[in-house]
Amino acid sequence: MADAFLTITALEKSYGAHKVLKGIDLSVNRHEVVCLIGASGSGKSTLLRCVNALERIDSGVIALDGDPVSGIGVDVNRLRRKVGMVFQSFNLFPHLSVIENVMLAPVKVNGLSRDEARERALKLLDRIGLSERAGYMPDQLSGGQQQRVAIIRCMAMDPQVLLLDEVTSALDPELVGEVLDILKDLAKSGMTMLLATHEMRFARDVATTVAFLHEGQLIEKGPPGQIFDSPQMEETQKFLRRALFVPG
């Protein structure tokens, strides 16, 4: 892995006595899209939250571009400027309008002028076809629109890697497509992404690597064709049989 951008080594994390992550090794190359799949509670979300330092890790190393970013004494604010994160429940700021949601971090963190930030925010909103909703409040938008704004809010900080935590799980089925389309565009533009997802179809289409998590361990990983068509491990086969089962 010559161009490994994000490397996770022997990562362990417990909540009290409950061990959630039992030694995860994973690396993400530049311009790669890594999909984490696995049952609920397998540790996908925790892994993403650890990478963004929203959870303190117990042991192991997370390195970004060769720089360790985990552990005590690390400047988490610098880390987070490089790493964007999108959440399952959007987490837009309800007291700010759509464009102010997008502008907040560039103005307060990067020190952009409000005019400059507004211009950039409008361009980003235009990219997802929501520039006309710039003045709306988040709760006036549909779930899909909110999640698109949340993604753009992250992109406004020019992150080098994007973490996405089941970003379509809280959406009505007919709204999933519009969010996945944006992620596909981002992937095409070369964005490095690490995402937890239940959308197997999306993972197959977009991922460069699929990693299967089972009870806090990374059981199997590989290109989507290999994982979905000829999974080697029994747990993976079992999970995929259930996940890919189409009733009727």
Partner: peptide, 10 residues
């Protein structure tokens, strides 16, 4: 809300 703000670098 804090998680979202912190993850943006605030």
């Amino acid at each position: 809300q804090i998680a979202a703000a912190r993850s943006l670098g605030l």
